[in-house]
Every structure is written in C-alpha cells, then in structure tokens.
Nucleic acid binder design. Sequence first.
DNA 1: GTGACTGCAAAGTCTTTGCACGCGG
DNA 2: CCGCGTGCAAAGACTTTGCAGTCAC
Lengths: 170, 170
Amino acid sequence: MSRRYALGSVRVSLSPLERFSEFLRSRGKRLTSQRRLIVQQVFSHHDHFDAEELLEHLQELIARREVSRPTVYRTLGELDEAGLLKKMTLGGRNVYEHDYGYPQHDHLYCQSCNRLIEFQSKEIARLCARVAEEYDFEISSHRLFVTGRCAECRRQGLLTPSSESVKSRG
Amino acid sequence: MSRRYALGSVRVSLSPLERFSEFLRSRGKRLTSQRRLIVQQVFSHHDHFDAEELLEHLQELIARREVSRPTVYRTLGELDEAGLLKKMTLGGRNVYEHDYGYPQHDHLYCQSCNRLIEFQSKEIARLCARVAEEYDFEISSHRLFVTGRCAECRRQGLLTPSSESVKSRG
DNA sequence: GTGACTGCAAAGTCTTTGCACGCGG
DNA sequence: CCGCGTGCAAAGACTTTGCAGTCAC
C-alpha cells in the first residue's frame, strides 16, 4: 500500500502544530514540549489509532520521562476539541483519526481484521440533511459505519474477529 | 408521547422469550429463572437502555438475590448474540435496543438531551450496498448516527450536553 | 513571577472473570 | 445427576483526577 492518504488531502495553510498552537493561545493555554511531541507523533503519518497505540509509539519518550500517559490522554482530548482529530468509539475504546487537512469521509469496518477503510459519498450528507429537515433537527455531524468483511479477509477465509488494534487502510 | 413504538413493529410469530428460549436450546444453554426475568424486563417496553438502567429497573430483584449484576451483563450479551437486542456504543458505554419484531432504522442523536430519535430510510441501505460493491466488501450491517440538536432543545436554547442516561423518543 | 501543566499514583467507571454452590434438563 | 449457570468478590481494561512541583509566557 503506497498511498498513505487514502482520500488525498485538503489544502490547509497552517501545519497541525501551528493550528494547535493557535487554538491553545485562543484558550489561554500553553504550547508545552509535551504537547509539541504528541502532535508531532500523531501527525507523522495518516492512520487511525487509539491511546494505547500512540503510547506505544511514544514509549521511548515516556521511558525518558519526557511525556506521560495522563498527558497523552489530556492532549488527545484537546486535539479533538481543537478540530485536529476526530474521536470515535470502536469496541469500547476511543479511536482517533486526522480531521485537519483531511476530507469528510465514512468507514467500512472489517470485523475480521479490524481495519477501517475510508470512503467518500456526497449522498450521505444529502440524505442526512433531508432527514434532519423532516425532524426539525440541527445536524452537527454524522457518522456512518458499514460493518462486515473486507475483500482480503474473505479471500483468506478469515471468520474470527482478531483482537489486534485498529488499523487503517487506504 | 403516546406512541411507544416510534416506527411500528414487524410481525413475528414468537414472543421474545420464546425466541430466546429457542436460541438457548440450540446452543445447549438453559432457560433459567434469571434469564426469564431479564428478558421480561427488557421487552416490557420499547426503549434504548444501558446496563445501568436495566439494573435499576431490576433493583428489587437484585435486592432479593433473584438476579445479579454479572448475570445481567452476561444475559445482555446473549440477547445480542440471539439477535433479540442490538448493541451499540454511545459515549463509552454499551447501549441496547430491541432488534426483534422491530424494523431496521437509524438514529438522530441529540447532544443536548441525549435522546435517540429513530428514523427509517431505504436509501441508506442502497447506498451502503453500492459502496460495498465498489470495495468488494461483504456487509453484515450498517449504523448511521446523525449527531446534533433536536427541535425541542433548540427551542429551549439548551447548549450544554446533559449527563443523564440515554432516552429514546418516537 | 504566576498560574497553567506535568508526572505520579491513585481512583473512577464500566464490564468481565474465577470459583464453589445450585439448579435446569 | 451432570454440568451449565449463578452470585459473590475480585480483577480487568481504559480513562480520569488530586496534588505538589515545574515551566511557559
């Protein structure tokens, strides 16, 4: 898989770190070395991840006491608030994905390999808008998950859901 | 709200308890008094609920030692397996809804009052099928959540998400 | 300097599990 | 009467919080 970005990207003028810095300033918060390190790691590649995976990637820094578990959790929340990450829940744990410089999309979720496959569809938003109008509902966002089995797993005849962490695929 | 069933119902030949009983038999499991009590409570009215709410409804039975917390959790899992309940995750906790004798639907989720509003749309399934075909993906189910603010909350100008449990609304 | 931020340890919250007794088939 | 199912207590997975020292601004 050579394409790291399944759906291409959206033009943005600021880097994630710059954008986060601006968000922090607007809230009277501070750009600490820890927040910098976490943002760097999070945006070093496009992927879906949960706190545990991020902590693994940061294990050296954690061992060196340059960043800690609670700070990672706290910062993930801030990145979500700041609109840099989008949080979702999958199998009881919080999973994050890039939401800055990345287009709106939905997911196919393979129960066999736990992969999230991204796809785009303009119709979904249209459909949501129509339903919302009917119910006099004010949409802030939508989330469509299509669960099943991906082509690869079907070929391999995998039936049992694996317990590995969530991986993305483009 | 006089309509207890927002979307009407689907004709089924067996009662939930009968259906569960059949499921249990097919698995070499037993229809115990506890499972009977839990099924009765769960299907006594149509609503979305989580384990904590169900436990509250069962508090008298729990006090009398006729049923226990672990058994409630175990039975909810079995009802999900049996296809009587559908499990979903909302705000980190598992939420259940009737899935037997009840039509396929999706949800509007109001962030202010935490209500789930059910709606039906044939187009969603069509759309999912089309996407799945494109990705050579085998669908087992889909789940669409439209998040935002319901008409009532908008009228009341409620902005802050409440922390009460999930309620359904027809 | 001062107050936001951090790491640590500890506590939450929701859910699951090990075990010995009890009861359904 | 076998062995699945139960209640109990305890552990588990994930995440959050209180606090005192530390560092960004």
